[in-house]
């Protein structure tokens, strides 16, 4: 069985249930500076979880701990567990590259590979991880670009360099790149910060569609957005998880004073 078939088999088995993440006692440091303190949070499968909080509170750090990207920063360190479908991603014998391949990520700043073509940018994940080539690869790239609502804009210039796209298009290209690997979980760090309102709306619709088959964690500064798309929302302050719950619940009846202050715009 080639790698692509194995993956597809696994997907078929797992997709109906989706992947849940359960973060337990997670602490993260940059050198001596601690950025996350004892985070406990459960991300249900096939749902959208929004992370909100003022700038610098550790949202990006948490997201980067979920696909083992945090530890690639020199001096950075993580302690605690992140259980994905019963398996700790920080457990022994788990390869980070395998975790990252199944937990996709879209970064705060669009980061396409500038010298590669649009096509290559999307194709590179499946090419490396699944050894896909030829028409299957083409189909996958087209499908991913369509999902990211970019296909119509780029279908005639798939082979021009990615750097020729606008900022918003680049961000959607990065979404397509993550989707091309058909990950179990999709981490999105402020995916709309570089987008105009129409593309933002498209991405929001996309997220709502995708949650049927993907577990999604999305960082956002926009509370209306969180209210629109998220099933659950978690509020962070200075590296601590202050409150977490059903989005409706959290926005209408926050239990903590800090949460109320933040969502009513009194600070942050």
């Amino acid at each position: 069985m080639d790698q692509a078939t194995v993956e597809q088999t696994n997907r078929s088995v797992l997709r109906p249930m989706g992947m849940s993440l359960s973060i337990e006692q997670l602490n993260a440091w940059y050198g001596r500076k601690q950025a996350l303190f004892d985070i406990n949070l459960t991300v249900p499968p096939l749902s959208v979880t929004a992370l909100i909080g003022p700038s610098g509170c550790g949202k990006s750090t948490l997201v980067r701990c979920l696909n083992r990207l945090h530890e690639t920063i020199p001096g950075a360190r993580v302690e605690g567990r992140v259980i994905a479908n019963g398996l700790d991603i920080y457990g022994r014998g788990i390869r980070p590259m395998n975790v990252r391949r199944h937990i996709g990520m879209v970064f705060q700043q669009p980061n396409p590979l500038p010298t590669r073509s649009i096509f290559e940018n999307v194709a590179i994940g499946p090419r490396l991880n699944l050894g896909l080539r030829g028409s299957r690869l083409k189909e996958l790239v087209e499908r991913s670009l369509q999902q990211a609502a970019l296909w119509e804009e780029v279908k005639d210039r798939l082979h021009s360099p990615a750097i020729s796209l606008s900022g918003g298009q680049q961000q959607r290209l990065c979404i397509a790149r993550a989707l091309a690997l058909e990950p179990e979980v999709l981490l999105m760090d402020e995916p709309c910060s570089a987008l105009d309102p129409i593309s933002t709306l498209q991405v929001e619709e996309l997220i709502t569609y995708l949650k049927r088959q993907y577990t999604i964690v999305v960082v956002t500064h926009n509370m209306q957005q969180a209210a629109r798309i998220a099933d659950r929302t978690a509020f962070f302050l200075q590296g601590h998880l202050v409150e977490e719950g059903e989005t409706q619940q959290l926005f209408t009846h926050p239990r903590k004073k800090e949460t109320e202050d933040y969502i009513s715009g009194r600070f942050g």
Partner: peptide, 8 residues
């Protein structure tokens, strides 16, 4: 588990 399918 998807994280364990490394042996391809």
């Amino acid at each position: 588990h998807p994280f364990l399918t490394t042996r391809s």
